[in-house]
Design a protein around this nucleic acid. Sequence first.
DNA 1: CGTAGTTACTTGCTCAGTCAAGTCAATCCT
DNA 2: AGGATTGACTTGACTGAGCAAGTAACTACG
Lengths: 161, 161
Amino acid sequence: MTRADRPTELDDEALETWSALATMLEWLPAALDAQLQRDSGLTHFEYGILFALLKAPDRTLRMSTLASYSNSSLSRLSRAVSRLERKGWVERSPDPADGRYTLATLTDDGATHASEATPGHAQMVDAVVFDALTAAQAKQLRQISRRITAAIRDESGWRPQ
Amino acid sequence: MTRADRPTELDDEALETWSALATMLEWLPAALDAQLQRDSGLTHFEYGILFALLKAPDRTLRMSTLASYSNSSLSRLSRAVSRLERKGWVERSPDPADGRYTLATLTDDGATHASEATPGHAQMVDAVVFDALTAAQAKQLRQISRRITAAIRDESGWRPQ
DNA sequence: CGTAGTTACTTGCTCAGTCAAGTCAATCCT
DNA sequence: AGGATTGACTTGACTGAGCAAGTAACTACG
């Protein structure tokens, strides 16, 4: 059933909902980015890279694995890792098992920095998401997010990559 | 009450929720942008500009009004309007009532283009949001979005602009 | 064993966004 | 009236992202 088949009465309500969602969609990532930037000089994307490496065995991952973790193109990742390398937080080396792969490894400095960035970021997420919602709402939000994500995945032609 | 005071048991669930939300936060804007770009050669931001002008009296708004509607900096808006001007969809003129203001006006071409872009975009929003949710979930989503937005607004020091 | 093809990146180009510094018009304050 | 201030943009320099073309390391096939 598409929206067109539903009672027209819903449309105003839907518009309100869409407006509220669109606002949240704009501000939430901006707020999280601003906190990370202010407190740790990192974009959310860079933080994701450091965090993934921190949790990985030997603090090391292949570029391509990291790209799929962080849901980004290899190109974007390559540039981001270059920036992190320049700051001394990550190092690159060819994979001895297959020279086509590049291994990204978190340095000690990088591990320290990532560890220090984490609590503040988690606190921000708590403050703007979980503290703002009831437990039931949080649960609803999980299901809603999954449904929307699934709907996007199903949309003809378009595949997130 | 902060999250730290809640039963630890919730943490896993919260992590799941956060992960689902983060995924949605990444894919939903990307999916909407992709649809607009593919079907109308517009970014979501540019579409917002055209749509706001289309609905405005005389299809005209001051730049600063438009900036607050689209929740953007004047700088960003100025560049976007320059692009739309180059395509012949928008024109600029000084406000006769106060020369400091600049009026942005939708051209006929621009109005046509915006009108043509709207149904496809609305359909996409329906497809990935409203069709994917029950009416109750949509209602919940509206409240959840508002609460999160309010929490961001309340966060010390940070004001969206 | 050599060559064609594939995989895993990297990089040049271009574009959109931010920030800070301009410009220009109105207004305020003696 | 007239210099200082404020408001509303605009623009130049810089940064990050995407796309497409390049490169280097392996693999498959005749």
